[in-house]
Design a protein around this nucleic acid. Structure first.
Lengths: 337, 337
DNA sequence: ATGAAAGCGCTAACAT
DNA sequence: ATGTTAGCGCTTTCAT
């Protein structure tokens, strides 16, 4: 009908007074599983509705030391991580949790800022490709704050992590390339020291060597389209031009398709095969249509929340989860014989 | 040396005891502009450092009713909004503010969730293309919570907004197309009811009619690459095929370039000009290289923070800010004679 | 300039 | 099952 009767702030005391009960009764009415009679609860709820009362989560968190807030830090919110953040945000909302976001510096250790986030009594910390110190991780554990890393950038012991299947996916890709009859496979790395890139390279080489092939041609493209263009030019202008290139992500693969087709006049998918990783948006666009292995965002987010629940039950119950993706074969790779 | 001596929680009382002063003194030492002697401040700081003390922002916000938290809601975190979110996050961090993120449903009015965010005593609310009710906006105003909309999806009276220069940018584009000598300009809309799309169409038509041209060909592409492909096909298979297409964003423009070149064998930038809007990442990729008008993310974010400061001073001091972008001419448009 | 005391809004023993 | 009493950690009058 008319506008809601929210006063500036209506407190549990107001509700208690109106309902003619104690403040604790009000508290219990809003605490799931508290011992309160249905009659009492109804009475309180009636009064609360009339006043538009909702418990103040800030005040609540001061006593419970839980806030329903999850701290999330990401080094990068572009491309790959935007959908992840979006999914994470949706899922957390579904669970009645809030998301306190922090943009970390990809290079630096983020301890100081994480410290600040911690002071908000967050119920957990989720970090996506963010650097942190061992000391900080220990502090979280001592403080009882569950910590989950998504796509960790360094090897993190004694911390729960969720990762895509870098090694497994790359093996599938290596096998595909071998089966397609290629003989001079190349690899385009992201960064040399990025575990993601390393694992993808290792899986690839593993599969190739199983097929009696070796990968002797290699460039670094820093995971970006622009640098991928450069790296592709270097690869394709070699005298021993590779006939297959596996790029550590889709941005670089799309760049490589572009260079191969437009600058070198190559028939991508016949003369040369080009493969990416992650199944980023543009990999499916007709101009690229690049074969890839999915980074399974939604399952990864779900598993992350599972890990949190698990850690809330038993904070020492850590585990490393690898989430399998899916090989998506498109026209950038030569059809199997 | 060895690990930091953080106890579970060290409180102002601990510091006061160690420094041999009162709890209030500790509070003042951490309150900018409080009346405290340099000597006292030094003493407190020494003790605080020793204990690794930092004021608990949750407790603080309970009394001050300010939290240093900014609520941010976005309907979409892809493409365009990922960089915006990233920039926003960086700037807020620089200002010592935290970002509480919420993913809104683009269709539904987000009042209920926004209500939840409000209960965290947020110091302001920033909404990017999110629907909200008038009642909620009024509630924010009464509650003294500044509200700023970025790219509002409906006409919002009495609310501060920050927008890119849709109309102005589109005029520049219309003028460019006219000057290039095109005679059958078309428009590809996003959604018919999106103000962004409407303004871009209006500015375009305005400039065309100034040049004695009219735009009689029009399709809708829903702002996406995929739907843009379809819309482009419809446009280009008409008997009166347009010789210039302005698409309401870059995703659709890239799709149109792709279709024109690959499916219709057109020489993009000679036979036909194609223009986008927003300067999304892929618009600069060599395969597209599409002329566009920037959505000036960084200035928009800066202006948003300015508006917040302004509203913190005087909550009734609302304003509508339009941030000009820049025309970026690339090879997808015919060179001027 | 400093300290003592009251209270922000809530939950958590402890009673009954 | 309900009410009473203490705090959670901090800021803020109000004294001095």
């Amino acid at each position: 009908m008319d506008e809601p009767p929210f006063s500036e702030t209506t407190t549990a005391d107001d509700v208690a007074r109106l309902a003619g009960v104690s403040k604790s009764a009000v508290s219990r009415a809003f605490t799931p599983g508290a011992s309160i009679s249905p009659k009492m609860r109804a009475k309180v709820e009636a009064a609360a509705n009339e006043l538009g009362y909702r418990p103040n989560p800030i005040a609540r968190s001061l006593t419970t030391r839980r806030s329903a807030i999850i701290g999330v830090a990401m080094a990068n919110m572009d491309q790959l991580y935007a959908p992840l953040l979006q999914r994470l945000s949706e899922r957390l909302t579904e669970e009645g949790l809030r998301l306190l976001l922090f943009k970390a510096n990809p290079q630096r250790i983020a301890d100081a800022e994480l410290q600040t986030i911690l002071s908000y009594n967050v119920d957990a910390l989720i970090l996506a490709s963010v650097r942190l110190s061992d000391a900080f991780a220990q502090q979280c554990e001592r403080g009882g704050v569950p910590l989950v890393l998504i796509n960790p950038v360094e090897n993190a012991n004694h911390i729960s992590t969720v990762t895509g299947d870098d090694h497994g996916g790359a093996r599938r890709i290596g096998t595909l390339i071998a089966k397609a009859g290629h003989v001079r496979p190349a690899f385009m790395a992201g960064y040399d020291d990025a575990p993601t890139s390393q694992l993808r390279e290792a899986g690839y080489r593993h599969a190739l060597s199983e097929a009696g092939l070796s990968c002797d041609i290699r460039e670094v493209g820093h995971f970006t389209f622009e640098q991928g263009l450069e790296a592709a030019r270097r690869l394709l202008s070699r005298p021993d031009r590779p006939d297959a290139i596996f790029c550590a992500n889709d941005s670089m693969a799309c760049a490589t398709v572009d260079v191969a087709r437009r600058e070198f006049g190559l028939d991508v998918g016949r003369e040369i095969s080009i493969v990416g990783f992650d199944n980023e948006t543009m990999s499916s666009w007709p101009g690229f249509d690049v074969t890839t292995y999915t980074l399974p965002i939604t399952p990864m987010v779900n598993r992350t929340l599972d890990l949190l629940q698990q850690l809330w039950r038993d904070r020492s119950d850590q585990s490393k989860v690898t989430v399998p993706g899916e090989l998506i074969v498109r026209s950038s790779t030569r059809p199997l014989p």
